[in-house]
């Protein structure tokens, strides 16, 4: 073997070492148990049992989803509830993130811990907690009554507002963390410069800080929206049937009616919402990558 050939082999071996082959096991696993099942699920939703019970190709499920007033209502409510929860999360989360980054100082670690701590508890436990607080004889009602503010317990559960409270409670930490991550990256000298140039604190916030932190808001909003879209436990336990969204309907279709095809079709509609969000998120990440 010539020296040149040996050299060439050594070179190619080193080039190969920098390759992507270690991703193969994970990719194959996800191909088999993630992408393939989703694709098959897509197909499944296109086959509807005929009179004899034989599956035939049909868009029936989707036609039903997008023409029937009830299902359209469910779809609209799914998006509306998620949007509302997202907006409230932004309004609540931004001041908290701002305080955490700019004023918390040595308490910052504790704040992060308190934000993450609820994630250590079961979501069922947290939802149950709201039950305890909002129930007829719960914390809130008994407190209000003992203060003499109300005479009879208020009906707080089984109500859309309970659902929104529950959703915001579960999702707002994600919003705070997303916004805080971006705020941390903003050079405070920019704000100081604006104030020295005569901008009031409010204007500095509006014209410097807020525009620069929009990325964090957007990231947080997409995450929160996506998670809200997929949750049904809150609706189930706090809504008591007053707020029927797609995931809750899927749950019911699966458990009560056992109509898997229709559940699959609704799942796919949910998937489309998720893919749109995911696409937006990727665009955001790409743009970040390009800017830095």
């Amino acid at each position: 073997m010539t020296a040149a050939a040996a050299t060439a082999i050594r070179r190619s071996r080193r080039a190969l070492g920098a390759g992507l082959w270690p991703v193969l096991p994970a990719m194959i696993f996800l191909l088999l148990f993630f992408l393939l099942p989703l694709a098959e699920n897509g197909l499944q939703s296109l086959y509807v049992p005929d009179a004899a019970g034989e599956p035939v190709f049909s868009l029936d499920y989707y036609v039903r989803l997008f023409t029937d007033g009830y299902y359209l209502g469910v779809l609209g409510r799914t998006i509306w509830v998620s949007l509302l929860a997202t907006i409230i999360c932004i309004l609540i989360g931004y001041p908290v993130a701002f305080f955490m980054v700019r004023h918390a100082g040595r308490w910052n670690g504790l704040m992060i811990f308190l934000l993450v701590a609820p994630l250590l508890t079961s979501i069922i436990m947290r939802t149950f907690g709201w039950n305890v607080i909002l129930a007829r004889n719960g914390v809130l009602n008994s407190t209000l009554m003992s203060l003499g503010l109300i005479e009879r317990p208020l009906r707080l559960l089984q109500d859309p507002s309970a659902v929104i409270i529950g959703l915001v409670h579960v999702l707002v930490p994600f919003m705070v963390i997303s916004i805080a991550a971006v705020l941390k990256g903003i050079d405070t000298r920019l704000e100081e410069a604006a104030e020295l140039l005569g901008a009031s604190r409010w204007r500095t916030f509006r014209e410097i800080t807020l525009p620069l932190s929009l990325d964090g808001i957007a990231t947080g909003a997409i995450v929160v929206f996506m998670l809200a879209n997929g949750s049904f436990l809150t609706m189930l336990l706090l809504g008591g049937g007053s707020v029927v969204t797609l995931p809750l309907l899927i749950y019911q279709q699966f458990l009560l009616v056992q109509n898997l095809g229709f559940a699959a079709a609704m799942g796919n509609v949910l998937l489309v919402l998720a893919v749109i969000s995911l696409f937006l998120q990727l665009r955001l990440i790409r743009r970040d990558g390009g800017a830095s």
Partner: peptide, 26 residues
């Protein structure tokens, strides 16, 4: 690498309830 990491992270962004149904079938 971009494509691969998109696939590897995608399960985070899929509604769990859909993934549950799809996996049950499969």
């Amino acid at each position: 690498a971009d494509l691969v990491s998109t696939v590897l992270l995608a399960p985070l962004s899929i509604p769990m309830i859909l993934l549950g149904i799809a996996l049950l079938y499969k």
